[in-house]
Design a protein around this nucleic acid. Structure first.
Lengths: 210, 210
DNA sequence: CCCTTTTTCGTACGCTGTACCGAAAACAGT
DNA sequence: ACTGTTTTCGGTACAGCGTACGAAAAAGGG
């Protein structure tokens, strides 16, 4: 039996409120006071459910990682990996603060472990060794993270930066850059195409050389 | 002729002090007051040289990007890309705060544009289209960033996290993960090997399918 | 010598994370 | 019922943050 005064709230509610705030107003809006008042609690009460703000953010990351729906494995590692990176991209687009939260941090909650486990399962038919499979997965998640970062940044690149880039183009100091922009427009190849390159190319290379 | 009171310092000194602080004590140590006192100035004087803290960090990123030495192109795109990612990794290891600073941010200073220009040059002999070459470069920088993040985090993964991971292994809920760890040890394949996979595999795939 | 322009930086405000601590609320034992 | 014991609750307080504001200082031009 629990001994003391029973908690009025639980960690789940705290995390839900924090994620809601971050989705709406960005990671900086996730302050202890705002999260607390969001669930009608005093600021210091949060420390019952969470050790400090850093851990709160770690927990938020693992929480949204748990939202990913990982479809059952088909045995076709190419298709399974494709679904995996798609799920990760969808999650990161839904929670734009993730790109900022993951920076430099190395979280490893249960949901992220489950994600890894799923990925290892997808790669099982490939015949790669365990260490290599881990490396491939790390690479893929890194690829998705950096792609989504670019994707999100593209939507809201500041006017000043555009100005500077245009000026740099006009200066003639970056001929290849200017050519690339002039030629292809600024939109990157779509996610599916690149993901396909990476998955196929990477695994082919790994099976050949490892 | 300059009209008003001449500045006692310049942006260069501010950036140098800020980078020194970040290298020594992390990005959080880069506060306006500390940077200012580092160069013997009052806190508010910084705003003469830098619009605000966010821009200061953008400028720091571009500054260390300028430190990279990009060796002259050889015409062998595989070797040239290899040198490129090596330079980026060295820079990120030298300035560990970069992984955190780049999060969610999309900086585009002159030095970063020069980096891109160099990369496009390296890919010129590959025969890829401009847009595709940009995509390949974005992929490579993303790969390096995520590899170095893991590399740095590995050095100092908290005790608690290790505890949790070990517990998760023992629970039997993550059989493939446990197997991968048991089999290969925890060290990832070295940077050079993976970089080789990525570069070769990716470009092969891109030339074939694009 | 003063006027204009620019840099310098002390003061002040609102906000942050969180240490500390008394009050409140539950159960266990008498 | 009453009295510990244990836990949560949340107010107060403090150091530190970014930065708005404005007065003082330092230069050149007339």
């Amino acid at each position: 039996m629990p001994r003391g005064r029973p908690p009025l709230r639980n960690r789940e509610q705290v995390l839900a409120a924090a994620v809601r705030l971050a989705d709406a107003d960005g990671l900086d809006a996730v302050t202890m006071r705002r999260v607390a008042s969001e669930i009608g609690a005093g600021a210091m009460s949060l420390y019952t459910y969470v050790p400090d703000r850093e851990h709160l953010i770690d927990l938020m990351v693992d929480r949204v990682a748990g939202e990913m729906e990982l479809p059952a494995l088909t045995g076709d590692w190419r298709a399974d990996l494709f679904a995996l990176v798609g799920a990760q991209r969808a999650m990161m687009l839904k929670h734009p603060w993730l790109t900022g939260a993951l920076a430099g941090r190395s979280v490893m909650g249960l949901n992220l472990l489950a994600y890894l486990e799923h990925g290892l399962g997808a790669l099982e038919p490939s015949g790669l060794s365990g260490g290599t499979r881990m490396a491939v997965l790390a690479l893929l998640t890194g690829f998705v993270a950096s792609y989504v970062t670019a994707e999100l940044a593209g939507d809201s690149t500041g006017t000043e930066q555009v100005t500077q880039i245009v000026a740099a183009m006009a200066s003639g100091d970056f001929p290849r850059l200017a050519a690339a922009f002039a030629e292809g427009g600024s939109e990157p190849p779509d996610f599916e195409r690149i993901a396909d390159w990476v998955i196929t190319g990477l695994v082919n290379q790994a099976t050949g050389n490892s």
